[in-house]
């Protein structure tokens, strides 16, 4: 295994992915991911300069839907799957920290 991604870089990527890794997990992923990523270097054998990328497959022009209002599905039903709801809304924990909020208020 060659080290392509450093432990530090791996920690950063996990942060961005909103995943908390224990030291043990981090070590395991460090080995596994470097193992896989180092094999990706094989693609450097190929001359890809003039090749256009395939991001998706489409066999025909994507169809347009008619621009008409329609009743959505679910409604109340959709909210039933939510961890927390109130008055027909999804509830999330506080987004803005208290201190930030106070600073904001002062500026106003």
């Amino acid at each position: 295994m060659r080290e392509v991604i450093s432990l530090q870089e791996l920690k950063r990527i996990a942060q961005v992915s909103k995943l908390e890794l224990s030291e043990e997990e981090l070590q395991g992923f460090f080995e596994d991911i470097n193992n896989v990523v180092s094999r990706f270097e094989k693609l450097n054998d190929l001359d890809l300069q003039d090749i256009s990328p395939t991001s998706h497959l489409s066999w025909s022009e994507p169809p347009f839907s008619s621009d008409e209002p329609r009743a959505g599905e679910g409604g109340e039903e959709v909210l039933k799957g939510a961890p927390q709801v109130a008055n027909g809304y999804f509830v999330v924990p506080r987004v803005v920290d208290k201190e930030e909020k106070e600073n904001e208020d002062r500026r106003v």
Partner: peptide, 10 residues
């Protein structure tokens, strides 16, 4: 799943 999310994010 975590491994692939990290790989893909990278």
């Amino acid at each position: 799943v975590k491994k692939r999310i990290i790989l893909g994010t990278y």
